[in-house]
Every structure is written in structure tokens, then in C-alpha cells.
Simulated scan of single mutants.
Amino acid sequence: MHADPNPPATTRRTERTEGTPIAAPDDDPVSERSPLAYEAGVYELHAERHHPPLATQQPPSSEELTAAWEFLRAQRLTSPCYRVPRLSGASDREVSVKCEVLSPIRSFKVRGAFWAVAQAERAGIREIVTASTGNHGQGIAYAGSTLGVRTTIFVPEDVDEVKFASMAQLGAQIERAGSSLADAEQHAQAYAVQAQATYLEDGEDPQLMAGAASIGFEILQQLDQVDTILVPVGGGNLAAAVALALEQSDSRARLIAVQSTAAPGVTASLLHGHIQRIPSRTRAGGLATDRPGKLSFDVLRRRLDAICLVEEEWLWSGIRSAFDGVGLALELGAAAPFAAFERFADELGGRQVVLLASGACIDARDLAFALSGGQRGPL
């Protein structure tokens, strides 16, 4: 059946059949919708393998994916994956946590950034420009300082101060610009043209995606069996990267992306078959995008099995779940898979479940607030 773009509150599983995309008008390639139209729940998807790509660039090839993984292993930019019985609760599932928070910047973003900047350095590029709400910028800053490449990062005015300080400490030039990530991206692109620098856009750059795909390869290598993988989704780069790794490995594991009902741009886009722009109201910087990147969208349409929306308030409970279960102090967006598993374990499917802990850049006050049982709604 077709997905109802405005499902009632009781809806918990919505399907969309292959070959029936809801096309956007030719003069309206990106549509605007209200974030209030999408309820929490699990939305099943079906692969669309024969649609024209939206991105001007192709996803990384098998050779590029393998090269990135081998390079990052040589740089020891890897992470453990632990089985965590406490998170299984009374269910018969075995839950494992992929601990990307143990990277030099406490986020998975270091992988794609390091690979992309390394390729730029080899090509003789002197300056990298990007826009970020925090973790992507930290990855670019870390890679630039390590490899000797100048980095300039544009951030929204209300960027998380912990992440802002980290980017600055890593030696990047930071510029505040606009009230949203989209505003920061526009300023970054204009500056890159003026400075004759190279612009890297998270969710649109194949090198960033190739580096992040190493996470998927590692999960499959570290565990004997994987049935379901839950990843947080903002612009879609992480989910798309893991999808590519599963494709190349011929894995049949279910891949489920999780985002907040306060920032459902990816969900809306996948359900409607074209990119939808929905203003973000989430407090979670890692989820705070209004739409997926075109390259990420192209990949997710053909390989993502389902997408799960969680209420903004549940993210705070997800922080507590991760801390109590495995001792990780996750940031709000990274808690999304934990919140989804708490609420929808039966609907997500699979016995061997992996929760991807993607980032741990959280303010001490927010962590204390979450651990004390506090929760906040969207902005």
C-alpha cells in the first residue's frame, strides 16, 4: 500500500511499494512540508533500483570503498563493537553497540573526513571549506591539522558550544553564518569560490561516504551474525555509507535509519520519492538537517529497509539507556538508535541487533539533565 504522508497517531508501520514514487512537479524539485505531519513509528521501505539519480556525482566504487577501509585501518581509525546484555532486557535479542565515540573526536565523522582530506592533500589542495553543525566540522578540522591542510568551517549562529570549541582547538578557522545549516552551507560555498578553495559537502561527497562505509565493513567483520543495524540519520551520509558496505558485502542485514519527529526531512523524502525540505526543530545537532543530501538519497532509496521516527523527548531517554547499558555519554542525536530500540524493538526485527553509537560531544549539564530523568521537546 502507499504510505500516508499524514499518518494518524496510532500508525506504527507504514509501507511504500516499489515503482510508485510520488513525483515532484518539474518546477518544484524540492517541496516544503510541515514537520508536524509525521508521527513516531517504523516506516517500511522497498528498494527502488531503477530511478534516475539526483546527484551529479556517483557513489564511491567498490575499489574506492576498499581503499578507504584499508587506509583507515592502517591509520588505526577503527572502533570496537561490544555485545551488551543489559540492553537486551527481557527480550531474546542480542544487542551489540558499535562504539564510534572512541575516535579522536568522539564521533564517526573522523573516518570520512580523514579519508577525504587525505585525498585532497595528495592532490595538492591547500584549503578545505565546509559547513557543519559540529561533528563533521570536527572531523575536517582534525584531519586538516594532522595532514597539514588549512580548514575553514562555517557553522550556524546557534552551534553547540562544545563542538565549536573543539573545532577551534583543532586549528580550524571558524565562521558563524546564518540561523541554520542551510544558511551556513550557502556562505561556505560562496567563500570557497572567492578563496579558490575546495568545498566538501557532507552527504554529497563520495570520499566522505567512502570513509564512513568502513564502519559497515567492520561491523560485519567483528560479529558472526548481524540481523539489524540501527543508525541515526541527519543528512543521510552515515546511513548511505553503511548501506554501501552492506551491498558490497552481499549482507542481508536490515538497515534502519532513525531520526527525530522534529527533523523528518529524510523520512518525508523517502516516503514521497523525491527530496522534501522540512524545517528542523530538533535540539539534536547531529540530526538537525532539513533534507537529505542528493547522493545519500540516491543510495538510501535502493538499500534502506526502514526508517524509524522517534519523539524528540525520547532522545533523552536514549542517552540514559546508553549510559546505563554500556557506560557511554552520548550526544542527543547519537541516542536515536537507543531510543528507537527502547520503543519499537519488536517492530524493528532481527535477533542480532547493532546500535551505532555515533557521537559523544555532549555538554556536562545536558548529560546530568538526561541522567536525572529530564527531557525536553523540540525547539
Rank of each mutant, 00 (worst) to 15 (best):
T228M: 05
A335H: 04
E100L: 13
L379C: 09
G349T: 02
E121M: 08
A131M: 13
A306H: 00
A364K: 11
D227T: 08
R303L: 03
V242F: 04
F154R: 09
Q119S: 05
R13Y: 06
L371P: 05
G293F: 07
E312N: 12
D27T: 11
L332Y: 09
A74P: 03
R49V: 01
A340R: 02
T11A: 15
Q57P: 00
L87H: 05
V266S: 09
L379R: 15
I229E: 03
R33I: 01
A40Y: 05
S249Q: 14
N135Y: 14
A55S: 15
A24H: 14
V233W: 04
I278W: 02
S132P: 08
G134S: 15
V310N: 03
L355H: 03
L309E: 01
L170R: 15
M1K: 06
Q186I: 11
L332C: 10
Q173V: 14
S358T: 15
L220D: 11
A195M: 10
G124I: 14
S358Y: 08
T289Q: 08
Q75F: 00
E15C: 07
A284Q: 06
E70S: 15
D224L: 06
P279L: 10
R283I: 11
L270P: 01
F114R: 05
E32G: 00
P8V: 12
T56G: 14
D202I: 01
A210H: 10
S62C: 01
E342A: 08
D160C: 12
T14V: 13
P156K: 13
F217G: 07
E342H: 02
D227R: 08
A210E: 09
V101K: 01
P378M: 08
S249F: 01
A257I: 06
L77F: 09
D158I: 04
L330F: 07
R83D: 10
R303K: 03
R33Y: 05
W314R: 13
S103V: 02
T14M: 06
I153C: 14
G112K: 09
L208D: 10
S107Y: 12
A24P: 00
V233P: 04
H50E: 10
D346L: 02
F338K: 03
P232G: 06
A68S: 12
E32S: 09
